[in-house]
């Protein structure tokens, strides 16, 4: 959030209760994220339940000692499904975010450093960004058919142009830096200028942007799966569990709420950490969109 110290005028309670005490939401967020990561990695050992085990006699039961979050329409243990779902949602989110960042970085370097490529690349990026991302993702899945790979592509394509724009901006501003001009006049090879002198400068904004891309990727996967155009139903993800819970929502709201709460808290944690990173690295960096 906004830094307060350099603003003149009335500075209410802010001056008194400053720095450390207000860090707690970020710490809780970090702790929760670590918790979710651990759940995603060792999840299968945390639950004896099998997320795919169908038990027709045990359909849509309320939460109990045996089934902490109850059972779904096919008698599967919802707790186990949410735990396994964490793994899917987190892996899909991280892979999609990382791919968006790398692709965005590569294309952004190109656009920022080579004016010839710039105009074309940026027109295409503007075009992609003019298509609302959920709509584009839904359409991409429609065309390619829903499986893990196509869902990843459907998340990456709407996401990476924002990274391109960010990286390009950084590179453009670096081009006129004296040390870059010096490097150019010393006939430093282009790849060396790009990777040695420019790339490190993109790191801080990329890390900040990365957290928001990650949050967005996890949300997009959930939305796609929720709409029934995401991961195939046999892979438990938070979005899928909710999609299947819709029919029985009035009877068992937990079918949507348990995965929903995990999803919201995970994304909330990532966003809070992202905000903190942004304040730390660059308070002037553009505020998300």
């Amino acid at each position: 959030m906004q830094k307060v110290q350099d603003l003149p005028g009335k500075a209410p309670a802010a001056a008194r209760s400053r720095p450390r005490s207000r860090d707690w939401p970020v710490r809780v967020a970090c702790a929760f994220l670590v918790f979710i990561l651990i759940v995603a990695v060792v999840g299968p050992f945390l639950t004896s339940g099998d997320p795919l085990h169908i038990n027709a006699a045990n359909r849509i039961k309320p939460p109990s000692a045996e089934h902490l979050f109850g059972t779904d329409a096919m008698g599967r243990d919802v707790f186990a499904r949410v735990i396994y779902g964490a793994r899917t949602s987190i892996i899909v989110g991280f892979v999609a975010a990382l791919a968006s960042l790398l692709l965005g970085l590569a294309v952004g370097l190109l656009a920022g450093y080579f004016p010839l490529a710039d105009a074309t690349i940026m027109r295409v990026m503007d075009g992609i960004m003019s298509i609302p991302s959920i709509v584009l993702a839904v359409a991409l899945v429609a065309i390619t058919g829903a499986n893990l790979g196509t869902v990843l592509i459907a998340i990456i394509v709407p996401e990476f142009p924002r990274v391109v724009r960010l990286v390009r901006g950084v590179i453009l501003s670096l081009r006129s830096e004296p040390y870059v001009e010096a490097a150019i006049s010393l006939a430093t090879p282009t790849w060396r200028i790009l990777f040695r002198h420019m790339l490190p400068n993109t790191l801080a904004p990329l890390i900040v942007q990365g957290s928001f891309v990650l949050a967005s990727a996890i949300l997009t996967e959930a939305a796609l799966s929720f709409l029934g155009v995401g991961l195939p139903p046999e892979i438990p993800s938070w979005g899928n569990i909710m999609a299947e819970g819709r029919t029985y929502f009035q009877l068992r709201p937990g079918l949507i709420f348990f995965p929903g709460i995990f999803l919201a808290l995970t994304v909330l944690s990532i966003n809070l950490i992202g905000d903190a990173l942004r304040d730390r690295f660059d308070p002037k960096l553009e505020k998300r969109h």
């Binding site: 949050a215 949300l219 959930a222 939305a223 929720f226 909710m242 929502f249 709201p253 949507i256 709420f257 929903g260 709460i261 999803l263 919201a264 994304v267 909330l268 990532i270 966003n271 809070l272 905000d275």
Partner: peptide, 13 residues
């Protein structure tokens, strides 16, 4: 932050 971290379908339900 919670507002834009919670997907529309979770808020909706």
């Amino acid at each position: 932050v919670l507002g834009f971290s919670t997907p529309v379908f979770v808020t909706g339900y």
